[in-house]
Design a protein around this nucleic acid. Structure first.
Length: 420
DNA sequence: TCTGGGGTCCTAGGACCC
DNA sequence: TCTGGGGTCCTAGGACCC
């Protein structure tokens, strides 16, 4: 059965446009956390020459010249709209594989190539009507070719919205037109090696000697070669594999030198990470705390990462915060300007309902109920309604996000006003 | 002055064992 | 001249994705 993929166009920018129609037809960009880099661009912003991933301060001249509208990222809004897209798609096609915030794979079957494309078009129109977001649909014999179909659709002057590469003739034409570094799974390092060996296009790669590719770049790259030939190596995964790690980290709005502030920041990240751990119904056996200096500065770098095996697998925020405080002390060096802090929860195991340690001297069941109540309150009343005191109240180390749009769909105070 | 965050998988090399 | 061979496990680092 052919594989299909939907991919939302310029997802974050499109989300902003759903609630601010005046942004349509205008150059718009959305920034990364801390208003650092450009991570989503409208077509108009791309045409103006704003590159993906460029730091805001470097993009300033172009932004001013073309009157580009700039937004801080609003992940609550994007996450909510993503959920609506995914649910809409599931309603239309059944089981899907959620691949990222704006992409999903699914099986799509129809007797002819024409009817496949018609089915793709119907999905595109349905999602457009339900969510206001434009999506591109790619259909092909393998995931890698389906992604390539999306790239072909985006590259084409006609902007078809749906492309099928189920016919070998169509696949070959698309492969010929696509530079090798645009193939899904080919990053800068592979591209350099391939180009140096004379592999310039996706078609060249599909015709490369698979054993040579495996020897030179490894099995992952060899799989890409096969996938480009229409041999499926990456199956659809309808149920996501259990989570293996949870990270929470953030750059600071300004350099931080005090242990007290680092403790607060780390407690904040532990609290965020533990919440996600509980939502995934997992417990951690290892906790890791890391600090980083500004890697773009010429100053000496210090990027410690210290970890501890936890005595009992846990998802309890207070317990994790306690361990994290000891780790941050071990990592901290006096007199260093830190730019980033974070935590990782590793070596995750399933959270079984009554995981009470007999000898660890804590009433875990009671604490677990407290956590459930906290999570519920934060879900209902907005995040951070209840949080550990250790995260502090001023949070001077927090990030900049001066241009965030309202959280139209997830915060009562920020609902869309239809007529003022 | 200003440079994101969160994931996964694979590989190479070392330690250790028989 | 010639220096075992083959497992497993772990880890750090690299590669990729969005």
């Amino acid at each position: 059965m052919p594989v299909a993929v939907i991919d939302c166009e310029n997802f974050y920018v499109s989300c902003e446009r759903v609630f601010q129609p005046r942004l349509r037809g205008r150059p718009v960009v959305v920034l990364s956390n801390n208003d650092g880099c450009v991570i989503s661009r409208s077509e108009e912003a791309k045409r103006a020459g704003v590159r993906m991933g460029v730091p805001l301060f470097e993009a300033r001249p172009l932004i001013e010249e073309h009157g580009v509208e700039v937004f801080s990222s609003n992940y609550e809004l994007y996450g909510d709209l993503s959920g609506r897209v995914m649910e809409g798609l599931e309603g239309a096609v059944g089981a899907i594989e959620r691949y990222s915030i704006d992409e999903a794979f699914f099986g799509l079957d129809a007797p002819t190539d024409e009817s496949l494309r018609a089915a793709g078009l119907e999905i595109r129109e349905r999602l457009g009507k339900w969510t206001g977001l434009p999506v591109t649909v790619g259909v092909a014999p393998t995931k890698t070719l389906a992604k390539l179909a999306v790239a072909a659709a985006r590259q084409s002057e006609k902007r078809p919205g749906v492309v099928s590469l189920c016919r070998p003739r169509h696949a070959e034409e698309a492969l010929r037109r696509l530079p090798v570094e645009k193939v899904w799974g080919v990053g800068p390092a592979y591209a350099r090696a391939l180009r140096a060996a004379g592999v310039q296009t996706a078609l060249d790669l599909s015709r490369a000697d698979e054993r040579w590719v495996r020897g030179r770049l490894g099995v992952v790259a060899a799989r890409i070669v096969l996938e480009l030939r229409g041999v499926s190596c990456l199956p659809l995964e309808a149920c996501p594999p259990p989570r293996r790690s949870v990270t929470s980290s953030r750059s600071f709005g300004r350099p931080v030198t005090s242990l007290a502030e680092l403790r607060e920041a780390v407690a904040f990240h532990v609290s965020k990470a533990a919440e996600r751990l509980r939502r995934a119904r997992r417990m951690a056996r290892v906790l890791l705390v890391f600090l980083e200096t500004n890697r773009f500065a010429a100053d000496p770098q210090h990027a410690p990462a210290v970890s501890a095996a936890l005595p009992v697998p846990t998802d309890l925020t207070p317990e994790l915060v306690g361990h994290a405080q000891r780790l941050v002390e071990r990592a901290f060096l006096d007199g260093v300007e830190y730019k980033k802090a974070g935590v990782m929860l590793l070596d995750l195991v399933p959270a079984r309902p009554a995981q009470s340690g007999l000898f660890d001297g804590r009433d875990r069941e009671r604490q677990r109920r407290v956590m459930e109540a906290v999570d519920r309150l934060n879900r209902l009343m907005g995040r951070d309604t209840v949080r550990p005191a250790r995260v502090g109240f001023t949070q001077a180390w927090r990030t900049n996000c001066g241009r965030r749009s309202p959280r139209y769909t997830t915060n009562w105070r920020e609902l869309l006003t239809v007529a003022a």
